Simulated assay, not measured.
Amino acid sequence: MSLRDTLKGTGVALVTPFNQKHEVDFDALGTMIDFVLHGGVEYLVVLGTTGETPTLEKSEKIDIINYTYERVTNAVPVVVGIGGNNTREIINEVETYPLQQAAAILSTSPYYNRPSQQGIFEHYKLISEAAPKPLILYNIPARTGSNISAETTIRLANECDNIRGIKEASGNIGQCLHILQNRPAEFLVTSGDDQLALPLIAAGMDGVISVAANCFPKEFSEMVRYCLQNDLYAGRGLLYKLLDGFDLLFEENNPAGVKAFLAEMGLIKNYLRLPLVPLSEKVHLKLKEYLKALNEFSTA
Rank of each mutant, 00 (worst) to 15 (best):
L188Y: 05
Q175G: 15
V224Y: 00
A212R: 06
I179F: 09
L228K: 02
L177H: 07
I201S: 01
S221F: 08
R225N: 15
S170T: 14
S210V: 10
L198V: 10
Q229A: 15
Y226S: 13
R225S: 11
G235E: 05
N172E: 12
E222V: 14
G171A: 08
D193E: 15
Q181I: 02
M223H: 00
C227E: 03
G204W: 03
C227D: 11
A169N: 05
G235K: 00
G207P: 04
K241M: 11
G237M: 04
A234E: 14
S210E: 05
D206V: 00
D194M: 01
M223W: 05
G171N: 10
A234V: 08
S170D: 05
I209L: 11
N230W: 11
V211D: 01
Q181K: 11
K218V: 11
V211A: 03
V211Q: 05
I209C: 03
C215Q: 14
A169E: 04
L232V: 12
L228N: 00
G192K: 01
G235Y: 02
S191D: 04
G235V: 04
H178Y: 14
E222T: 13
N230L: 12
F187Y: 03
E168D: 08
C176V: 15
R236Y: 13
S210A: 14
L232S: 09
M223C: 08
E219W: 09
P199T: 12
T190R: 06
E222F: 10
L200P: 09
I173N: 12
R236N: 13
C215K: 11
L238E: 01
K241Y: 07
C227I: 00
P217F: 03
F187E: 00
A202F: 13
S210M: 09
N230M: 13
K218R: 14
H178W: 15
A185D: 12
G192L: 03
H178G: 12
A197K: 01
K167E: 03
A169K: 07
G207C: 03
V189H: 06
K218T: 11
V211H: 04
C227H: 04
Q181V: 02
F216K: 08
N172A: 13
Q175K: 15
G174M: 13
V224M: 01
I179K: 05
E222I: 12
L242M: 12
D206R: 01
P199Y: 09
C215D: 12
L239Y: 03
L238G: 02
G192T: 00
R236W: 05
Q181M: 09
G207T: 06
I209E: 07
F220S: 09
Y240G: 04
Q195R: 13
V224P: 02
I179H: 06
L188M: 11
S191Y: 01
I179R: 06
R236K: 12
R225T: 14
Y240N: 13
G192V: 00
R183I: 05
R183W: 07
L200T: 10
G207Y: 01
E168A: 03
M223Y: 06
S170W: 10
D231C: 08
A203S: 07
F187A: 07
G237I: 02
P184E: 03
A234P: 07
V189Y: 00
R225V: 07
L232M: 11
N230F: 10
Q195W: 08
A185E: 14
V189C: 04
N182D: 10
S170H: 10
P217K: 05
V211M: 04
K218F: 14
A185H: 12
Y233L: 15
D206C: 03
L188K: 03
M205E: 08
G192Y: 01
E186K: 13
R183Q: 10
E186L: 04
L198A: 10
